[in-house]
Structure formats: C-alpha cells, structure tokens
Design a protein around this nucleic acid. Sequence first.
DNA 1: ATATTAATTGCAATCCATTCGCAATAAGTG
DNA 2: CACTTATTGCGAATGGATTGCAATTAATAT
Lengths: 149, 149
Amino acid sequence: MAEKTFLANKLKSAGLRMTPQRKLILSILDETSDHLDAEEVYRRAKKLNSKLNIATVYRTLNVLKEMDLIEQRYFARDHGVEYYETVTKGEHYHFTCLGCRKIIEVETPKIKQVQAEFAALTGAQFTHACVCFEGYCADCVDSEESFTL
Amino acid sequence: MAEKTFLANKLKSAGLRMTPQRKLILSILDETSDHLDAEEVYRRAKKLNSKLNIATVYRTLNVLKEMDLIEQRYFARDHGVEYYETVTKGEHYHFTCLGCRKIIEVETPKIKQVQAEFAALTGAQFTHACVCFEGYCADCVDSEESFTL
DNA sequence: ATATTAATTGCAATCCATTCGCAATAAGTG
DNA sequence: CACTTATTGCGAATGGATTGCAATTAATAT
C-alpha cells in the first residue's frame, strides 16, 4: 500500500492518473529479477489482465521510465530490443553470454570514474551511460571451441 | 593499391568477391572522421554510384563488420540507428551531447580494465563491449539551464 | 580471350519492435 | 453523480534493417 501510494503520488504530481494497467506493469518489474523486454512484460501482464494491449505496455514503460521508476537497457551487441528493470538495484552493468544467452550482472565503479574524469577534464555533464558487454561465460568457454578470438 | 589488395585478399579468403560497391563503401568510411549511419553512407556513396541501392549498403556494412574492417556503434540512449566507423582508430568511446548533438570521443583504459577484472574473476571471455555516454557538453552546460539533474 | 558458375546487386516486398491516431472508456475532481 | 480529460484498446503506420528473387557481374577454368 505504501508502494501503491508512492506510484499514485508520483503520477499525480506529473498530472497523470493511476490505472490498474500501470500498477500491474510496475509490479511485474518490481517483483522479478529477470530482465524483461516489452514483449515479455506484456506476456506476463496479459495473464492477469487478458484485455491488456501491447501498445499500453509500451506507453506505460515509457511513463515509468520518465518517472525514473524503471531503467531501459540494451543487452548484447544487437540492440534490436529494449529491456527494462527497476531502479531499485544499485549501479551495475550487464554481460550477455552469446552461448547460453545468460545475463550476468557486473558491478564496478570504473564506469562512474570514467564519467567523473571526463567531466572534470571537459566540463561536460553526464545524464546517462549505456554499457553492455558481450562474450562467453565460463561454462560456455569450457564447452564451446569455436568463436571469434 | 596496398589497401585495395588488402580488402580483396580479405574478401577472397572468406570466399567473397571484390566489387566496386564494396570498395566504394569502405573508402567512404576510411576517409571520413565523421560517424555515419547506413543512410548517410548511402547518401555519400550514391553521389559516386547513382545506381547503388540501400540494401547493398546494409549488406556491405555487415560484410565489412564481419571482416573486422569496420565497427558498428550506437550513440546516445536512443539506439534506433546504428553507426559505423573504421577500426583503424584506437580504443575509444563516445559521448553524445543532447544539446548540440556533437559526438566527443572519450579515451580511457578503464573499460578494458573492467573486462579484464571480470574475466579474471569469472572466467568469462569478452568479445565486445558497447559503451556510450550521454549528457551535455561544456558549451551546452553553460548556455542551457534546464535539463534533468 | 571466352565460357562458366556462383556471388552479388538492384528492386520490391517484408520484417519487427515500437509508435500513433482515434473513438471508446475510465480516473479523479468538484 | 456529473464532468473533464487522461488513458486504453485497437488497428494502422512507422522506420530501420533484412530478404527473396531474377538479372548482373566477378573470378575461375578452358
């Protein structure tokens, strides 16, 4: 209920309305540790609201993103699809295994350091960094032999 | 001529053929320091070969990418468009100014360090990193007042 | 040089994630 | 409860990138 009120208040102060769809979609992202794309959010949400439309999912994801409740991410080199996760996690980046498609979270302060150094050097101000790594996880390095070196 | 032979040889050893289109498209990327998307490569190439088709540009960019002659990049948070640059430059990343759309190149060893540390820690093997920064350059920070903090 | 054959091109159609227009619906105010 | 306007559902549209296919052309063998 605290959370519901939080979302409702955030929406209200932006002149937006609380709707079952918005509540549902945020709760799905809040309660998973998976990394979901819009299609998967839609799939999961539709189980609980069969009338839900994919356009609403996209619109809601954009609203939640603008309100800084979720983060949009890209995984892997092919950026054809956007993924979403809640902002409650700390700073982290993603490594996608090309073998098993597993996503491993990478924690490091170095990205922020790069930003700080570059900002100090040039006077620029950072608003966002997109970082994603690609390769083969230990398991797949062991089992697979052929990939680009 | 040395370069032409280099491309021809690379193509040949992959079972591919040297064509005027491929030579043209690589030369455009080789001779510019701009960051071009497929559309812009097409625009520039079409001036020299008016029959050229955009599909050929996309196919050629993919060929050149697979042969590690060019790198595909994304700039800024909105990854709707892919950009290309030759691999002849050293390791660097990109900062996109949301004010003036200028792209500033960022040189730092820290990204490679993150990869090395994570590889040592987990046994994973990296094949690619996608890193792009977004914000406001010094000029735009000075002149603009309103942006997300 | 010429013939051969498989890669490549140009063109149009297609894909697919995401967005948009719009009429119907529903949230929040008074 | 009524009213206003944000929001939804639906289908159509968008736009960058890809693909199928017949015509063309590069590279090889003759």
